[in-house]
Amino acid sequence: MARYILQRLLLLIPTLLGVLTIVFFMTALSPGDPARVMLGERANAQQLEQLREDLGLNKPLGEQYLIYLKRTLRLDFGRSIRTGRSVMEEIREHFPATIELALVSMFLATFFGIVIGVLSAVKQNTWLDYSAMIGALTGVSMPVFWLGLVLIMIFSVGLGWFPTGGRMEVRLFFEPITRFYLLDSLIILIRDGDPAYLKSSLQHIILPAVALGTIPIAIIARTTRSSMLETLRQDYVKTARAAGIHERRVIFRYALKNALLPVVTVIGLQFGLLLAGAILTETIFAWPGIGRWIYSAITARDYPAVQAGVIIVSAFFVGINVVVDILYSVINPKIRLR
């Protein structure tokens, strides 16, 4: 087991090195002079030269790459060209919002995805199964920005249940502690007994979490269903049933446990995708997360910020995959043995 984990961790090194290299050359080789784009219509020759000098763009590409590698390995991402602030500090400000949203989304998606998947497998070929699977197909195909606006139209403008966007009612004047707002507002509730912040943060996170979670819900439900169907046909399930064990116990204790193996992989992958793919949801719901931050860095050609953002998100993605692999081997010892 320990050897397996070590192996997986060692594999991280070439993977991350690959990420670093791709990120560098993608930014360095993208067309257009970044200095020109940054300065716009107003630039004069002297300012352009100065900026190229400041950015190190005058050095040969190989040298730029080596400097970049050295700094990145020291986790020194430098200062943002756009804001002049430490890139790491900016990531610290934006990443918790995305992680919080992705966690809540994944929680919703996992819970409802598995419930729906199990139900439609158990009730295969009934109206419940058909409507669940049509729902899942719709969920996968729905563009998030469209779904987001529809949710806002119905639940914010129409019913007035939830706000249209943001993380917290701005008029409440909230000062974050950990920058995970649900956690922060829970701390305030315990410390000061004031529930207003927790209520507001919950109200704000529900619509974006639902919008972001639609695709994972659908994918998890479909994976659970097919894996469950396969498991239910296995001999040991038939034996259990024949032995007169209660159906609910057969499904949850015997079948589901084994059927969950592929689902765990899917959940891990989806979680990684949510971190990177939350940008549309963040845009529609005015969620101040890392996706939007990277996007504005790209449009401003803020190279240090783009590189750091992509590296951090990729590292997270790779990290989650390793955790899933390890988790997988815990659930299914066969994997380890190979």
Binding site: F145, G148, L149, I152, S156, V157, P163, T164, V170, A286
Partner: peptide
Amino acid sequence: VIIRVIPDATARYLALKNGE
């Protein structure tokens, strides 16, 4: 005065319509 960011134009309009 609170200056908020709402990136999407339609979401901005809906927030205005909603009185937020």
